[in-house]
C-alpha cells in the first residue's frame, strides 16, 4: 500500500455508476433559539474506487450529511441512494452496504476483539463459518493476532483503533463513510488511516472522507466538496478547483468562500481554529442578528 502525494481521480472505463447518490439533501433542527438549517440543499455523487473529501469547518454540516446518508438521521427533505438502495425506503439494505468509521466510535470494553467482530458479523447476517475466516483475514491484515482474545479494556489506543478499522470491514461494504477518522490521533495513527483509506480505494470501494484538515484531504482524496454553513460551496477535483478559483491550496480556496466576518467558529466549539488568519472577535455564539437583538433587550 502506498501513500500517494496528491491522489489521482479515478478514471472508470465504463460509464461511471455513482454508488453514492445524494440529491437536494436538507436538514433542519429545532434548537433552543429557533430552527437551524444544518444541511442546505446538498447534492453529490461518489463513484467506486473514489475517495471523496467532504470538507468544512466544525459544524458545517458534514457529520449530519453522513448520518443522513446512513439513515441514522432522517433528512427533512432530499433523496439518498446508496449502492442502489434508497435510505428512506430501504434503510437496512443501505446499512448492509455501508460502513461507518468515526473517531468517536469506541469498543466494547468487556469483550475481546474476536467476540466483538463475531457480534458484528451477527448484526450483518454473516454466516458463522464465513465470519470466522473473515476475522482471520482481517486479523492478519490489521495485525491483531496477538491480542484477538484479550479484552478491549486493556488495549492501547493504537490497538483499539486497529480493531475498530477491522470491525468496520467485517461485512466488506462497497461504501465506507469516514467521519473525522484522524481526530485525536497521533502521527502513527493518522498514517494508519491514510494507508487504510488508500487500501479501500485500491479495493474499488467508494469512500467519503470527512475532515476539517484540508492538508491531509489534499493528499488523500480524488475529489473534494467544500461545505460552509450547510451548503456545498465548491466541488471538483483539485485541478478543477484550482482552475475555478485560481488558488493553489484548498486552504486558500476555503478562506475565499468564507465571508470575512463569518461566524466560522462558534463559541462552544473548543477546537482550535487551524485556518483562521484573522481574529476579528467573531466568536460570539449568536452572530450579528442575535447581537442586534441582544442590544434591544
Amino acid at each position: 500500500m502506498s501513500i500517494s502525494g496528491a491522489a489521482q481521480p479515478s478514471t472508470p472505463s465504463a460509464p461511471p455508476v455513482a454508488v453514492v447518490d445524494v440529491r437536494h439533501l436538507v436538514k433542519t433542527f429545532p434548537s433552543a433559539s429557533g430552527t437551524v438549517l444544518a444541511v442546505n440543499n446538498v447534492s453529490l455523487q461518489v463513484f467506486p474506487g473514489e475517495v471523496y473529501g467532504l470538507l468544512g469547518a466544525n459544524g458545517a454540516g458534514k457529520t449530519t450529511t453522513l448520518r443522513m446518508m446512513l439513515g441514522l438521521q432522517q433528512p427533512t427533505s432530499g433523496i439518498v441512494q446508496m449502492a442502489g438502495f434508497n435510505v428512506a425506503t430501504d434503510p437496512l439494505e443501505v446499512k448492509r452496504h455501508v460502513s461507518l468509521v468515526s473517531a468517536s466510535s469506541g469498543l466494547y470494553q468487556w469483550l475481546t476483539p474476536r467476540e466483538m467482530m463475531l457480534y458484528f458479523a451477527d448484526l450483518y447476517d454473516i454466516p458463522e463459518d464465513e465470519a470466522q475466516s473473515r476475522i482471520e483475514m482481517l486479523a492478519d491484515l490489521f495485525d491483531l493476532r496477538h491480542f484477538m482474545d484479550r479484552r478491549c479494556a486493556g488495549m492501547s489506543t493504537g490497538q483499539q483503533q486497529r480493531v475498530n478499522l477491522a470491525r468496520s470491514l467485517m461485512h466488506d461494504p462497497p461504501i465506507v463513510l469516514m467521519d473525522e477518522p484522524t481526530r485525536g490521533l497521533d502521527i502513527v495513527g493518522s498514517r494508519r488511516i491514510f494507508e487504510y483509506t488508500s487500501h479501500l480505494r485500491d479495493l474499488g470501494k467508494a469512500v467519503i472522507f470527512c475532515t476539517h484538515r484540508l492538508d491531509e484531504a489534499q493528499r488523500l482524496c480524488c475529489r473534494f466538496g467544500l461545505m460552509f454553513q450547510g451548503q456545498l460551496r465548491l466541488e471538483g477535483t483539485l485541478k478543477e478547483l484550482q482552475k475555478k478559483t485560481g488558488r493553489e491550496h484548498l486552504t486558500d480556496m476555503f478562506l475565499d468562500i468564507v465571508p470575512r466576518d463569518a461566524d466560522l467558529y462558534s463559541a462552544n466549539t473548543n477546537t482550535a481554529a487551524p485556518y483562521s488568519q484573522q481574529d476579528s472577535g467573531l466568536q460570539q455564539e449568536q452572530g450579528p442578528a442575535a447581537r442586534k437583538w441582544g442590544a434591544d433587550r
Binding site: V36, A38, G59, T64, Y265
Partner: peptide, 8 residues
C-alpha cells in the same frame, strides 16, 4: 454545536 454555524 450545529446551531452555532447554521443559518438562523
Amino acid at each position: 454545536s450545529e446551531t452555532g454555524n447554521g443559518r438562523r
